[in-house]
Amino acid sequence: MSARVGVVTFPGSLDDGDASRAVRIAGGDAVGLWHADADLHGVDAVILPGGFSYGDYLRGGAIARFAPVMQAIADAVRDGLPVLGICNGFQILCEAHILPGALIRNQHMHFRARDQRLRIEAVQPVWTNAFNDSQEVVIPIKHGEGRYVADERTLDELEANGQVIARYVGGNPNGAQRDIAAVSNAAGNVVGIMPHPEHAVDALTGPSTDGLSFFTSMLKFLAGRPASEASAAGGPA
């Protein structure tokens, strides 16, 4: 049976359909999760998709972090649930303090969408095991608040612990500190990424298929786990 990957829909989520499609193309089963439902329905991993949850009023992700589903995710993360936050999902994870740092308004103040070159900085077991070390990939970005910031000590720690997952190359699109495009938590099961790997899974509709490896990495990781560890909330409900 293929892994069940939850994709959360908040009011204002936009790339939830794309994330589900990417999961399917990678070979997993996408399971819709609703923001108001604290039950994770026994999924094996979760994706927080891009969009403008709750209109991004106040700050991107600031309201979504309080959604019932986020409380459940925060708990499951401690038990090792793989979580990928894409764009707005990354913002939510930072607002929830599941990931360090913050994402603020792009330095140039414009929303920017472009095909972005990235370098994969850490090949780690959960989300990037299908990449090569220092592999360069092309994945679209599209955001107005994607400038990653943290204090110097945190940044140093992230670098030292291999938690910087990807960096912008060929031009920093938003002014992110140290060109950071993606980071993980210390345990490595949670990754937040500003670019959109779900938009680079099919040559017909994306600039590359480079993004697919994030999803296949996670499925490979889940397939390799002993059965007793599988699924976050005690098996299918």
């Binding site: 936009l14 359909g17 414009h110 969408a113 679209p140 509709t205």
Partner: peptide, 14 residues
């Protein structure tokens, strides 16, 4: 101009 618009969302832009 066009860099300020999302062209990818919904995943069907060919």
């Amino acid at each position: 101009v066009t860099e300020q618009y999302d062209r990818y969302v919904l995943g069907n832009t060919v």
